[in-house]
Design a protein around this nucleic acid. Structure first.
Length: 510
RNA sequence: GAGUCGUUAGCUCAGUCGGUAGAGCAUCUGACUUUUAAUCAGAGGGUCGACGGUUCAAGCCCGUCACGACUCACCA
């Protein structure tokens, strides 16, 4: 146990000796927050305010203290921000002043006092009485630099939230962004629903799932990798407009863009096609952006992006032609396409068809070049097992993805509602699986049965919420927008032996 | 999975050629009745990520391991 922990435990005992139980407070009748004080008195004239002396009660965690003999200043923080307090020995009395003097950075205090402004014009609460609310036994990170150790930021997020206001606000914005999306969809008569996280067959996306086991039923279950198939069953169930914002799980690598669990929005609207969904997606992204910007202009990692102007809409084949000069509109055999791919440094997998090659050209030569918000549409049918074929050219689908600064933010299509076609697509996926693609979709017979009861034409959309929040809050890594990102476990330092000894002694005394 | 880098006081970081471990903040003692990273004087505080090796001597050199970050591969 280091000196600081020891000192804080001593202070804990001193408080008890004075008859103050350091964790005894049940509640505190708080009357103002930093924000309400600013709103009520922020613009008041100093002289008038200091004559009026309006009374208030505030509470918060003390994060800075500036002593000055028989008078002291401190900064308390509540959920809305900072409140400076001013404590005078001649006002609060000797005993109460000592409690203030002995309290540590990190402790929770409640202040009865009056609102005033200092010589520098800062709104301040002059204390009449300091109520001790809770003790912090461990010292907080450096107040000036904040917590910098990224490992500690992720493992002990509470420390990051206490010391890094920017990070704190980012998570506030995350919640507000999700709320804005809900409002947008609710206003358009979408019904928010909840579907199972535990699936018998993981489907709706190409990804490796997490496997788990239910004891009573003695069956293996999978954590969902997408929301898609249950939601489309609800479209079959005539709910017409549904959405879900929920966690999905993919058993894959993790890096700055990927976490094993992440939050996805999926929405489905009957009688819409993928053009309607493009409008919807633009609307959702703009509504979300309003949380952080008035004019739709944002800066992500130094690059200016305008989310306010209409997104570009470009066919995947046209974009490939634009970037490489290769024309995949021309009918092409697999041999021809493979030759072109190999000439362009693209490794062709055994199970690939022409469509996979076109998609690979897009990913290798186009994706990274996209900066402004862009809908890339018309994905090949081979890589789009759940999307409706294009009416004029069945090699492609009525599908689009949203790209901004080379990163994918959403995936959408006119939903395939022909059960026989869907069965054929699933079977093609099973062939891929047999040929070595262990992420290919499995056949979901119940889903096919549902579709046979009739599914209206439907436009579906999926948006990665975490990535959208990253974009809007200028976060460089997905971990920065996840309160508790997935980490390899580390031995947590246990209660020190000396602390245990102390507690033992105390228990004997009592 | 591969490569590169990092891990030193509660926090942020220095640490030269291998020769008794440093600073700022924080903590403790004292001074100070409008401070703003308060100031001034003094003091205490270290399993240098872990283990092993080389050496008279290792925070530093070598090896293994742990955890993390970044890049690449896979994926959203």
């Amino acid at each position: 146990m280091n000196d600081q922990l020891r000192v804080r435990r001593q202070k804990l005992e001193e408080l008890r000796d004075k008859g103050i139980e350091p964790y005894g407070a049940r509640k505190f009748d708080r009357q103002d927050l930093a924000s309400t004080l600013e709103k009520k008195y922020g613009k008041d004239d100093k002289e008038e305010l200091n004559n009026d002396m309006p009374k208030t009660k505030i509470a918060g965690r003390m994060l800075a203290k500036r002593g000055k003999g028989k008078v002291g200043f401190a900064d308390l923080y509540d959920r809305t921000g900072k409140i400076q307090i001013y404590v005078r020995k001649d006002i609060v009395g000797d005993d109460n002043y000592k409690i203030f003097k002995k309290s540590d950075i990190g402790d929770f205090l409640g202040i009865d006092g009056e609102v005033m402004k200092t010589d520098t014009g800062e709104l301040t609460i002059r204390a009449h009485h300091v109520t001790f609310l809770a003790k912090a036994l461990r010292p907080l990170p450096d107040k000036y630099h904040g917590l910098k150790d990224v490992e500690q930021i992720y493992r002990q997020r509470y420390l990051d939230l206490i010391t890094n206001r920017k990070s704190y606000m980012r998570f506030v914005h995350r919640t507000q962004i999700i709320q804005a999306i809900r409002d947008y969809l609710n206003n358009r008569h979408f019904l928010e629903v909840e579907t199972p996280v535990l699936h018998n067959i993981p489907g709706g996306a190409e990804a490796r799932p997490f496997k788990t086991h239910h004891n009573a039923l003695d069956i293996d279950l999978y954590m969902r990798i997408a929301l898609e198939l249950p939601l489309k069953r609800l479209i079959v169930g005539d709910m017409e407009r549904v959405y879900e914002i929920g966690r999905v799980f993919r058993n894959e690598g993790l890096d700055t863009q990927h976490n094993p669990e992440f939050t996805e929005l999926e929405s489905y609207a009957a009688y819409w096609d993928f053009h309607d969904v493009m409008d919807e997606a633009e609307g959702i992204i703009r509504a979300a952006a309003k949380v952080v910007t008035d004019d739709g202009k944002i800066t992500y990692q130094g690059t200016q992006i305008d989310l306010g102007k209409p997104f570009r809409r470009v066919h995947m084949v046209d974009l490939i032609k634009e970037k490489t000069g290769i024309d995949f509109w021309k009918p092409m055999s697999l041999e021809e396409a493979t030759k072109i791919a190999e000439d362009h440094d693209i490794k062709v997998e055994k199970f690939w068809k022409v469509g996979h090659i076109i998609n690979a050209f897009f990913e290798k030569y186009c994706q990274d070049t996209i900066v402004d918000p862009t809908f890339v549409y018309g994905h090949p049918v081979e890589v789009s097992p759940l999307a409706k074929k294009n009416a004029d050219d069945p090699r492609f689908t009525d599908r689009f993805e949203i790209y901004i600064m080379g990163e994918e933010y959403g995936n959408a299509f006119s939903e395939l509602n022909d059960p026989d076609d869907q069965r054929a697509r699933f079977e093609a996926q099973m062939e891929e699986r047999a040929a070595g693609n262990d992420e290919a979709d499995l056949i979901d017979e119940d889903y096919l049965r549902a579709m046979e009861y009739g599914m209206p034409p439907t436009g579906g959309l999926g948006i990665g919420i975490d990535r959208l929040v990253m974009l809007l809050t200028d976060a460089p890594a997905i971990r920065d927008v996840l309160l508790f990102p997935t980490m390899r476990p580390k031995k947590v330092e246990g209660v020190d032996e000396e602390v245990k000894e102390d507690l033992k002694k105390k228990n004997k005394k009592n």
